[in-house]
């Protein structure tokens, strides 16, 4: 493929990755920002979303109805599960950072094994509600001036466009929730200073449970959106966790805008670097590139000093 169309394709693919990543990382960012704990099981809620999407849509006989039902149900179920985990475990360890890591590793094992035992080890697809291949044009400057050509392979699907749109809409909604509502104010207050917030009568424990649930729900929503592209598999949470973790820190702790920018940075650099190098070398270079961003800007792109 020629360089121009190739780059455009890589950017488009990178944007799809970025959209899903931003959605998932925003959930982790909330938890991390407000509660100051690392939820190692976050990726498992992503997996849970994908697995539930398969379960719901196959129970309803597939099709658009099943998919929409999954979009609504999976985040609610995952969120409820997370709230329960928060109240029974995290609250009782007092949100101690280190104990939370061990406890959420335990939660990770539990969710993964439960998925293996009920859902099984296969990767299962969910049919997208719509999925038209849209061939894309490219501008070429020929002897008679610029003209449109339709390069071989340059295309995207309507579903991938929908994923980008949906992610943008949810993130905008989340931003509005955080900045324009009382709930957001309470969350931000808790994030800034837990003790003071408590002194002002904010029910910090309920805020924490809510944030933990919301974070899981966002991950599950990302899982539902990705499953028509990527299939559900019980091990899919691992790499997703690492990537979203990276996004959160690069973006700057607790900064939603930073998280989105970081997701774009990672998604696009992954795509664009792949144009120039062999695939594995590209992955290595993209990884090092992002790591060096952090080395030379340790507080993240949009963050203030981390601790």
């Amino acid at each position: 493929m020629e360089f121009g169309p190739h780059l455009m394709l890589a950017v488009l693919e990178g944007a799809v990755t970025a959209a899903v990543l931003a959605l998932m990382a925003s959930g982790l960012s909330l938890v991390f920002g407000v509660m100051r704990v690392v939820n190692v099981a976050h990726g498992q809620f992503f997996m849970l979303g994908a697995v539930l999407a398969w379960a719901v849509s196959s129970a309803l006989g597939g099709g658009a109805v099943g998919f929409v039902a999954a979009l609504l149900l999976a985040p609610v179920i995952a969120g409820a599960l997370a709230v329960a985990a928060d109240l029974t475990v995290l609250k009782r360890v007092g949100y101690d950072p280190e104990r939370t890591i061990v406890a959420t590793i335990g939660l990770l094992y539990i969710l993964q094994q439960a998925a293996l035992m009920t859902y099984g080890p296969e990767a299962r697809p969910v049919a997208p509600p719509f999925n038209d291949r849209l061939a894309l044009p490219w501008i070429e400057f020929g002897p008679e001036g610029p003209g449109l050509i339709w390069p071989w392979g340059l295309s995207i699907t309507s579903y991938k466009l929908f994923v980008m749109g949906a992610a943008a809409a949810v993130l905008a909604g989340l931003w509005a929730l955080m900045t324009r509502t009382g709930i957001g104010l309470v969350m931000r207050a808790t994030q800034l200073d837990r003790e003071t917030a408590q002194a002002f009568g904010i029910p910090v424990e309920r805020v924490y449970a809510g944030v933990f649930g919301l974070g899981a729900a966002l991950a599950a929503l990302a899982g539902v959106l990705i499953v028509p592209i990527q299939q559900a598999h019980y091990l899919m949470g691992g790499d997703a966790l690492l990537l979203s973790f990276i996004v959160v820190i690069i973006g700057g702790l607790g900064s939603l805008g930073g998280t989105v920018i970081a997701a774009l940075l990672i998604g696009l650099s992954d795509g664009i670097v792949s144009v120039f190098f062999s695939p594995t070398l590209a992955k290595i270079l993209a990884t090092l590139l992002v790591a060096l961003v952090l080395v030379f800007r340790p507080e993240g792109l949009m963050g203030k000093a981390a601790r």
Binding site: F32, V38, L242, F245, I246, I249, I250, L253, T287, L288, V290, A291, L294, V295, P298, E299, G300, A306, R307
Partner: peptide, 11 residues
């Protein structure tokens, strides 16, 4: 420092 150190070593 802190969480950024975790991520850099991870990457």
């Amino acid at each position: 420092r802190g969480v950024a150190f975790m991520i850099v070593t991870l990457m």
